[in-house]
Design a protein around this nucleic acid. Structure first.
Length: 469
DNA sequence: CTATGGCACGGATT
DNA sequence: AATCCGTGCCATAG
């Protein structure tokens, strides 16, 4: 009894650490499940539905207005939701449990307003109601639950009006929303890419003519049916997997899988979303770290009180619950804090990459980051693993990609090949790179080439001028 | 003979 | 301690 009490009274730092670590590796989805499970099994934990006033950061119960400054409370409640200043210099240490909150939620749940906001400029006033109707009637994958004709009838609108609105919606972020199904969504998304890219052309035909074969991975059959090289079919498939998302409304699809193992059914929502500031393009990036739960997780104060009043014989058990809950909440906070620090660092160091693409990835190691934010490198390692992040351009990449030392070089190679007049050998590419100050061995060029799915010089056809730019 | 891909080694990273 | 990455060497295909 006494021992138990001793143990539970003091939240052991080792236990604390251990649990924080185990929570850190989890993706949001996994953490969500974990929290739900914990809530169910531990009566001392409580999830409360509080909002934060954007102005004075007071907590407000339920929807409504802040009693102090009478501003409307934010609707969505990611626990951590922040927009670090770009000038942020990463030497600062933890600022306790003080999380910054922002007031511009763009959570997936709020799809309707999210899309409407984008449409504001293009939407005719008389179409607005129709747009709202369509957006709110979408099924959970973001597809049309009813055919356009039905919508027209239900809203007493004309077909042309419905089509006009649908077109607008499907071209807004997330592109492909409000289409009839995965296939149509893919087609719409494909239109946003340069049409002269051969991969795009083939991908387009694959989706339109050979969709079920594509789903089954029957690449050879597709190649024959379309009368194109199977190599091209593979490249197109890869392109689809990396750039398109068949379920735009639900989540993005993980592009982190290796080519080949990419199961077209792996989709997930990102753990972090980075978007560029719509107001001032040069301003700070907006970073949202999604919370695993909506609302606030805390130790139930009633339970706390109950424990103190409880009989001696029961209090052991109750205390245990209490301490566990306490620990859990602390660990969650710790996790959030670490994620925040990490993302602030990342956004600051890799701004160029985030905004301008693969070539500008600054090489860095996890150890470096760990040093800067003052945690152990294994902590960073855990925090990075299993997470994905959405970039402003909509691409979803694994967080680990920020640490890919060869990414920028591979991108250069891709560019060199894309712009070559006639097939360059690996050696030629290597020396070309050397001119740009990148010193790598010929053998390595070959390796990168294969990673990028670029054929050897011999097999590369002569480039036509049309492929340029 | 030249361009590539395979295997394997050493050093860095995790 | 386990893993990943860049490279050198060598066999092979063209």
């Amino acid at each position: 009894m006494f021992q138990v009490q001793d143990q539970s009274l003091r939240p052991l730092t080792t236990a604390h650490l251990a649990q924080t670590m185990s929570l850190l590796v989890l993706s949001n989805q996994e953490l969500h499940d974990k929290v739900i499970a914990e809530l169910a099994s531990n009566p001392a934990l409580e999830l409360i539905d509080e909002r934060i006033c954007p102005e004075c950061r007071r907590r407000i119960h339920g929807p409504g207005r802040c009693p102090v400054c009478s501003r409307t409370a934010v609707q969505d409640e990611p626990i951590v939701f922040l927009s670090p200043r770009d000038s942020y210099r990463p030497t600062r240490r933890n600022s306790s449990d003080d999380f910054p909150y922002s007031q511009e939620p763009a959570a997936p749940e709020d799809r309707t307003t999210f899309v409407l906001r984008q449409l504001a400029a293009d939407l005719l006033p008389e179409d607005r109601e129709l747009a709202v109707y369509i957006l709110s009637s979408l099924d959970e994958d973001g597809f049309l639950a009813d055919p356009p004709a039905f919508i027209a009838q239900a809203t007493r609108s004309s077909m042309t009006q419905v089509k006009r609105v649908l077109e607008l919606i499907s071209n807004a972020e997330p592109v492909g929303l409000a289409t009839e199904g995965p296939r149509q969504a893919l087609v719409v998304q494909l239109h946003t890419f340069p049409q002269d890219d051969p991969r795009v052309q083939v991908a387009c035909r694959m989706i339109q003519e050979q969709f079920s074969e594509l789903g089954r991975g029957e690449y050879d059959k597709i190649a024959r049916a379309l009368n194109v090289k199977s190599r091209l079919v593979h490249e197109a498939t890869e392109f689809i997997q990396e750039n398109l998302n068949p379920y735009p409304g639900r989540a993005y699809w993980g592009s982190g899988r290796e080519p080949g193992t990419g199961d077209p059914n792996v989709y997930h929502r990102p753990d972090v979303v980075i978007s560029s500031n719509p107001i001032e393009a040069e301003g700070p990036l907006v970073v949202e770290i999604f919370s695993a739960i909506s609302g606030w997780l805390r130790v139930n104060p009633l339970f706390d009180k109950a424990v103190k009043e409880a009989d001696e014989d029961q209090s052991d058990e109750l205390n245990e619950h209490l301490e566990k809950a306490n620990l859990f909440v602390k660990c969650i906070q710790q996790r959030n804090n670490t994620m925040r620090l990490l993302m602030e660092m990342l956004v600051t160091k890799q701004r160029q990459y985030i905004l301008e693409g693969a070539r500008h990835l600054t090489p860095m190691t996890r150890a470096e980051i760990a040093d800067h934010i003052g945690v152990h490198e294994s902590t960073v390692s855990r925090a990075v693993s299993n997470k994905s992040v959405a970039l402003p351009d909509g691409r979803i990449i694994p967080l680990a990609k920020f640490f890919d030392r060869s990414l920028s070089v591979r991108d250069r190679i891709k560019e060199i090949v894309r712009e070559e007049r006639e097939p360059l050998t690996d050696d030629a590419i290597a020396s070309q790179l050397k001119r740009d100050g990148i010193r790598i061995a010929r053998r390595t060029v070959a390796k990168y080439r294969s990673i990028e799915g670029i054929l050897p010089a011999r097999l590369r056809a002569k480039k036509k001028l049309s492929t340029a730019a």
